[in-house]
């Protein structure tokens, strides 16, 4: 197990190298510079600016210096936000997105997993069908429409919740709900599918045959094993948080990192583009590793070699 983890950790080195090089090449091949302005800047001013951010160095040198900084966890200055370093932007904006994502994830799990279990236990009944309809509603309504709609109903009509922005727990509810609908249906459907599969496994059949109460069988045996596929979606779902949170952050005016993915490219804010890509890549690797480890904990039949 330890060896497995170590090997996976070492593997991140070439991954980061390739991802960073690709991003670097791609972002520099997009036309425009951080200093492209509608009111064209005189050449002398351009020169001062480029000198300040070392953009006048050859590209390989810029790349080398960036990576050297990255290794020392110094992600450089933001070019568009001149008083802020990328480290600060990450430190201030990541936690917001993570909080939003985590709350959305919990919402989704709390609603989706029971929905899935319910519909699996009552398979092919009205309850099953209506649960699945509810679950699919979530995946079918685009959040671009759902977010403003929730604002309209819950903030403007009913006045139960604040319209937008960030700060108190009440502010989290609407955006987290908007973000959660997508996972909710995934949770429900995958839980249902894996429950159905597990309940046919021999040891469950045996348990049932031994006369253990149906509800106990369902909960204890089936649920534990059904968790494995659920853990599987946790990894990719984490990546989706970012895609989803971009829309939700924009609509609800939330100070998260999601918007930087679009604005940093628009601003040609090279250090921010690099840092968000690399940190995100690292987190994906970490999540996948955690998912694999949790497999091992949940299912002793899985071995690592």
């Amino acid at each position: 197990m330890f060896q497995f983890i170590l090997r996976r950790m070492l593997w991140t080195i070439p991954v980061i190298f390739v991802v960073s090089a690709l991003t670097f090449i791609l972002m520099h091949s997009v036309p425009g510079s951080p200093f492209t302005r509608e009111r064209a800047l005189p050449a002398a001013i351009q020169k001062n600016l480029e000198a300040k951010y070392h953009l006048d160095d050859p590209l390989w040198k810029q790349y080398g210096e960036y990576m050297w900084g990255f290794i020392r966890l110094d992600f450089g200055p933001s070019i568009a936000y001149r008083a802020r370093t990328v480290n600060e932007i990450l430190a201030q904006q990541w936690p917001v997105t993570m909080t939003l994502g985590a709350v959305a994830f919990v919402f989704a799990a709390c609603l989706g997993i029971p929905l899935g279990i319910l519909s699996a236990v009552k398979q092919n009944t009205l309850i099953d069908h209506s649960s699945m309809v509810v679950a699919m509603l979530g995946v079918s309504i685009p959040s671009i429409a759902l977010g403003p709609f929730l604002i309209w109903i819950f903030a403007l009509k009913l006045k139960w919740l604040p319209v937008a922005t960030w700060g108190t727990p009440a502010h989290i509810i609407l955006p987290a709900l908007t973000l959660s609908t997508f996972y909710l249906s995934r949770f429900a459907r995958i839980t249902r599918a894996s429950m159905l599969q597990v309940t046919r496994e021999e040891y469950i059949v045996t348990a049932r045959a031994k006369g253990i109460r149906e509800s106990v069988v369902n909960l204890k045996h089936a649920f534990r094993n059904a968790l494995i596929p659920v853990t599987t979606i946790a990894g990719p779902a984490f990546a989706d948080i970012l895609t989803g949170s971009l829309v939700v952050e924009q609509i609800f005016g939330i100070p998260g990192i999601g918007k930087y993915y679009v604005t940093s490219i628009g601003n040609r804010d090279y250090p921010v583009i690099m840092a968000t890509t690399l940190i995100f890549a690292l987190l994906i690797i970490l999540m996948n590793l955690l998912v694999d480890i949790s497999y091992a904990l949940l299912d002793p039949r899985i071995r690592y070699n």
Binding site: A155, L156, V163, A164, T165, F252, G253, P255
Partner: peptide
């Protein structure tokens, strides 16, 4: 000063009295 970039959301905030 808030920093809500979405014009329709800012409009909703205005209507809500925020």
């Amino acid at each position: 000063c808030t920093m809500v970039n979405e014009a329709s959301t800012a409009m909703a905030m205005y209507e809500a009295g925020v």
